[in-house]
Design a protein around this nucleic acid. Structure first.
Lengths: 228, 228
DNA sequence: CGCGGCTTTGATGTTCATCAAGTAAAGTGG
DNA sequence: CCACTTTACTTGATGAACATCAAAGCCGCG
């Protein structure tokens, strides 16, 4: 695929940029670079200075931080058209979260000052930025509360339903993360992730072989999510 | 005190408005109203249409939502100069959280469309709004993670230290919320809140009589917070 | 004055983390 | 490509942390 496409023609462009004119997109285009990242590759490192606004066009990435106990904690996953670190770029000097590619991915790195310039100049664009930030943070906050108010079975059920509906739009898919990473996403131990997955398999709710998962009883799974 | 002061002279005005000219402040002033709320009074109700941007000038309020199980959950407290519902006003039609006064309070209600108009017109102002939103959501997210990674003693310790340092700037203060509300803030049961407070009292870390609390061993309390 | 909600303490049971030990899978270097 | 090493996965047993239940005293308020 063509990496260094002009923003004005980019088919991965988010609606966030709809309010920019062709001239403004050209300005952005001059100040961005597009980079391919291999699976497992580091995109941003927690603590590094923020110089760019990162935008995911292809792949899947995780945002994580290190808790006080030294354990990794996954704050959220990002899909194509998601903005990485949008919650930090405008008010922090250094990245708060590390970002790692879960599969081969492609990101655009837009010079942060060029973007800020756009925000100041184009009022409709700044309103859109505000709406995007609000949406992202609302989602993280409500997801976090939802996870923490559920028991372990409910958490796993929620995660699987989300994968199926939000990320893969299919009842069968390959898990993009390890059991350990699942545990880091929903705040439990890897042992219990495995235990509950085995339980679901025993109960005929899912098929699971290695990373390949198929939801065979979505009704039941949704019920477990809602009641947990 | 004078409720309907002109924004240009308001001593409770947040830095958020620093970038507005006198004319712009006058425009805001024409489209705002200042309201006094009694302790326990409802300021915003979850589900109501968002027509105004609410700004706290005096008092203390709680933002809460109702979990699936029907239990109340307190998302955050807001002090003077804090913006209430800033995370919702730009991207939602209806309030997500209810807001209730914990003590007698005063709020300014600014017409939401007037504020949006300002954002579009004044680029420096919109940058400030973005920074504010980012700060608020970052704080809520990191506080939520911090709370959930601690055991119950650590949670109570964190809450008390926060009250002391952030809200009252004193080692002695009156708890602004009930034991039950404390439980709703840090996701535990009222019984355990009480149990642990009694423990802290037994261990000489705090004095507690009804709502009046005094931290007698801040060192130990901080240690419990950090190690929990 | 009495009712209902808040507070407090104790007893009990459940949920989940931790520890241990073994198997499978995935890198790695020769 | 194979032996080797490491990392991920899996199951069971145990104990600790915490929620729930129960009962009694307290306080504010109509």
């Amino acid at each position: 695929m063509e990496l260094n496409q002009h923003c004005a023609n980019c088919k991965f462009r988010s609606h966030l940029f709809d309010k920019l004119s062709v001239e403004e997109l050209t300005f952005i285009n001059r100040n961005k670079k597009t980079v391919a990242i291999k699976k497992g590759g580091l995109i941003n490192k927690s603590g590094d200075p923020i110089r760019e606004f990162v935008y995911l066009t292809q792949g899947l990435v995780k945002m994580q931080k290190i808790g006080k106990n030294g354990k990794e904690q996954i704050v959220s996953l990002a899909r194509p058209l998601d903005f990485i670190g949008l919650l930090s770029v405008f008010n922090k000097e250094f990245y708060e979260y590390s970002v790692t590619a879960l599969v081969d991915s492609v990101v655009c790195r837009i010079d942060i000052n060029s973007l800020k310039e756009m925000v100041k100049r184009n009022g409709e664009f700044s309103m859109d930025i505000i709406r995007f930030i609000s949406n992202i943070s609302n989602e993280i906050i409500s997801d976090t509360y939802a996870i923490n108010s559920k028991n372990l079975r409910g958490r796993i059920a929620m995660l699987l339903v989300d994968f199926s509906k939000k990320y893969f739009e299919s009842l069968a898919f390959d898990l993009p993360i390890s059991r350990k990473e699942m545990a880091e996403m929903i705040d439990m131990t890897p042992e219990n992730v495995i235990r509950i997955l085995s339980e679901f398999r025993r109960d005929g709710i899912i098929n699971l072989r290695g990373k390949h998962l198929e939801i065979t009883n979505m009704n039941m799974l949704s019920k477990i999510r809602d009641l947990g």
